[in-house]
């Protein structure tokens, strides 16, 4: 292996650590410090504000439903992509990744165009049937599902490919039907990948902002999520509340990531 000369090694260390410190570590620690400047006062103010409480509930509901939807869809589509052959498979597997790089704002606009109840292709008939999508919970869930869509799939597909299908064939030759094979053999072998996918989806769903902002209409105590409350309170100069709400979000998301890094075995068998 190439030996980095000592001065260069030190230079690289100082530059990278300095960069990460200035860009990430210091600013993040400042937010934590500001949040707890007056002890727990900021958090207490925030948690006694009905707008904040409602928004936290809203975030919980939307993120919860979105994660379940992405779990079911993600595991199903991963199995189809890895274990079956069908026309258009390559295109589908590429399209699945598109939500990762599409702007949340474009996601919001796209859903708005199709599902608005005034002239949306699908929004009008749905509205006539009594289901309001845009400016309501269904739209917010859809936006959140959209942005987090590939996360479970990206974790599960490589593991499914790596595990191969011999264990499944063995289970079938031993008399297990499809459902038994899935629960007893397939799922246990992709268990950790599914857990990581879910946790990453949860972190992403909790933090979604742009797409939800467009489709929710941002109505206080109705369709406002926590991220939207952070924006609103900050702009209304309620900085304490903004920092507290931001801290709660950041804490939950970072906790997700830390849990994953602790859970993830060095070499997932």
């Amino acid at each position: 292996m190439v030996r980095t000369p000592a001065p260069l090694r030190w230079l690289l260390r100082v530059v990278t650590i300095g960069y990460l410190f200035m860009l990430i570590a210091w600013p993040v620690s400042l937010v934590v410090r500001t949040t707890f400047e007056g002890g727990l006062a900021n958090l207490q103010t925030a948690l006694s504000d009905p707008e904040v409480v409602h928004a936290l509930q809203m975030t919980g509901i939307v993120a919860g439903v979105a994660v379940v939807a992405n779990l079911l869809f993600g595991v199903g589509i991963s199995l189809l992509l890895v274990r079956y052959e069908f026309p258009g498979k390559r295109v589908l597997s590429t399209l699945i990744d598109v939500p990762l790089s599409v702007s949340p704002v474009v996601v919001g606009l796209a859903l708005l165009l199709v599902y608005n109840s005034r002239d949306g292709w699908l929004g009008r008939p749905l509205d006539a049937a009594g289901l309001q999508v845009i400016f309501a919970t269904p739209g917010m869930v859809m936006a959140t599902v959209f942005v987090a869509l590939p996360l479970v799939i990206r974790e599960v597909v490589p593991v499914l490919e790596e595990v191969g299908d011999e264990q499944e064939q063995a289970a079938r030759s031993l008399g297990a039907n499809g459902v038994q094979t899935f629960w007893r053999v397939t799922l246990p072998s992709i268990k950790w990948a599914v857990v990581y996918g879910v946790v990453l989806s949860l972190a992403r769903s909790l933090g979604e902002f742009g797409a939800v902002k467009i489709v929710s209409g941002n109505v206080v105590e109705k369709t406002q999520t926590t991220t939207l409350v952070v924006e609103q309170t900050y702009q209304n100069f309620e900085q304490g509340t903004a920092y507290a709400a931001a801290f709660l979000l950041a804490f939950a998301s970072v906790l997700c990531i830390v849990i994953v890094s602790i859970l993830r075995p060095k070499d997932p068998a």
Binding site: E166, Q167, Q169, A170, A171, V185, P188, S189, K191, A269
Partner: peptide, 10 residues
């Protein structure tokens, strides 16, 4: 199977 196809989690 040639490569055993052991159920690794059992």
């Amino acid at each position: 199977f040639q490569h055993y196809a052991a159920f690794k989690h059992m």
